[in-house]
Design a protein around this nucleic acid. Structure first.
Length: 444
DNA sequence: TCCTATGATTGCGC
DNA sequence: GCGCAATCATAGGA
């Protein structure tokens, strides 16, 4: 079968399928029908012949012939049929293959950019890390500078990303329009269906989105580099301030029987010391600030490892605590004497009941913070003061006591080196815990 | 430059 | 998820 005959057959097949034809023209009935119009058949044959020979001709001749074909009355019908044939063959197969699932890599990049605040609405992405660092610095200005620097750089990245993205989108749209115009132009001389144009647009978009993916990848890399540099700078160890260390030590030694501050206590301490509670920010696992949790972890281990070395420190803080307590109690006594002329021991069992017996240290702080109520002191206020005075006088000579360990012994530690639930070492707690007193940390 | 102290990290067990 | 233990890394002093 020759080319012309094949096309003729195809033509017939399509028309049989009953498709409507461009330009509202119906194809002639299939061959073999009684009412075949020989003139039309001749027309189609003529057109096909012209098409088949057009490539053999010179450009000028071809242009002239193309013009003639464009004006031919059968052109719309033939164009439509050729489009359908094209659609039914290779393109339909290719089209099915082009249905790509969403690229997981692109999704990851999108998610990351969104999380970093580079794409999507501006939310100061990644600034949680910077904020944590700023907090960890205890308000130090250098970290604030680092923080703003980080944010400024992130904003810069964000701006560049959006500018580039806009450029790509614009270029994509321009190119798409250009290609569509070209195809529309070409569709006057060759069969290009709207579906094919649509498909071509899809291909262009995919190409541009692959370029966008590269942009996203580069942006992610830039953010990661910025991040790592920023974090590395903060990873540098900074010592706690003296004041912070003192506060933490005071808590530690006043809770020596169970030096595990609760979350609330940690927060309280962090506030007092202007440091972060924990390095664990769910989104910033690698962000490390100066932390209460780390401090207590290190302190417990190092204390356990070398108790002897810490005895001096323990006694020192015991004395400090004692002095604080003494002042508090003295103030309380004075207060109770002023406010309550009657004996203040009614209803008391003789214990020194702190407002919240679960946390001696913090309670001490509240004592100093004027929240203490004199009436709570109980019966043995004066004896407590005496005890305190005694302890303080003992503390003054702690150096002699070190050898015999009379001032302090690590009663809180068990044989395995772990903290057991016993009373706090006497010298440490004694200022507020005379005989019969309630343990300062009853939560133990 | 070395040494010590100390904050941070990591791996493991519970 | 928390704590422990080992270890790393670095600040600060001698």
């Amino acid at each position: 079968m020759d080319e012309q005959a094949r096309i003729m057959q195809a033509l017939g097949g399509v028309s049989l399928a009953g498709h409507s034809i461009q330009g509202g023209m119906a194809l002639p009935p299939p061959h073999g029908h009684d009412g075949i119009d020989d003139g039309r058949k001749q027309d189609i044959g003529d057109i096909l012949h012209q098409i088949m020979t057009i490539t053999d001709q010179s450009l000028d001749e071809a242009q002239a012939k193309k013009h003639g074909l464009n004006c031919h009355r059968m052109k719309p019908a033939l164009f439509s049929v050729l489009c359908e044939i094209k659609e039914k063959t290779g393109l339909s197969i290719r089209g099915a293959q082009e249905e790509d699932p969403p690229d997981p890599q692109l999704m990851r990049l999108d998610n990351m950019l969104l999380a970093e605040g580079v794409s999507g609405p501006e939310k100061g992405g990644g600034s949680a890390a910077a904020a944590a660092a700023a907090a960890a610095s205890g308000g130090a200005s250098d970290n604030s500078i680092e923080h703003s620097d980080y944010r400024a750089k992130l904003t810069q990245i964000r701006q560049i990303y959006h500018t580039e993205l806009e450029k790509y989108e614009q270029a994509c749209n321009e190119f798409t329009t250009h290609v569509m115009n070209l195809l529309r132009e070409q569709s006057r001389t060759r069969p290009i269906s709207p579906k094919e144009i649509e498909r071509m647009v899809g291909i262009i978009h995919r190409k541009f989105s692959s370029i966008q993916m590269q942009l996203k990848q580069s942006t992610c890399e830039a953010v990661m580099i910025l991040r790592s540099r920023f974090l590395d700078a903060r990873r540098k160890r900074r010592n706690f301030s003296k004041q912070a260390t003192e506060i933490l030590n005071e808590y530690f030694y006043s809770h020596l029987s169970n030096p595990y501050p609760s979350e609330e206590a940690k927060e309280e301490l962090a506030k007092k010391c202007s440091i972060t509670v924990s390095q664990v920010d769910p989104h910033e696992r690698c962000v490390v600030g100066l932390t209460v949790s780390n401090w207590f972890g290190n302190k417990r281990i190092r204390y356990k490892k070398n108790i002897g070395k810490f005895q001096e420190e323990a006694n020192l803080y015991a004395a400090k605590t004692a002095v604080t307590a003494a002042h508090a109690v003295a103030a309380a006594v004075q207060n109770s004497q002023t406010n309550s002329p009657t004996t203040p021991n009614s209803g008391s069992s003789g214990s020194f009941n702190l407002p919240n017996s679960g946390d001696m240290f913090l309670s001490m702080q509240s004592l100093n913070g004027d929240s203490y109520q004199g009436a709570q002191v109980g019966a043995n206020v004066q004896s407590q003061v005496d005890t305190l005075r005694h302890v303080i006088s003992q503390t003054a000579g702690y150096s002699e006591a070190l050898g015999g360990n009379t001032m302090y012994s690590p009663h809180g530690l068990d044989a395995n080196g772990g903290w057991h639930d016993t009373t706090t070492p006497s010298a440490v707690i004694s200022p507020t815990e005379g005989p019969g007193s309630v343990h300062s940390d009853t939560s133990n």
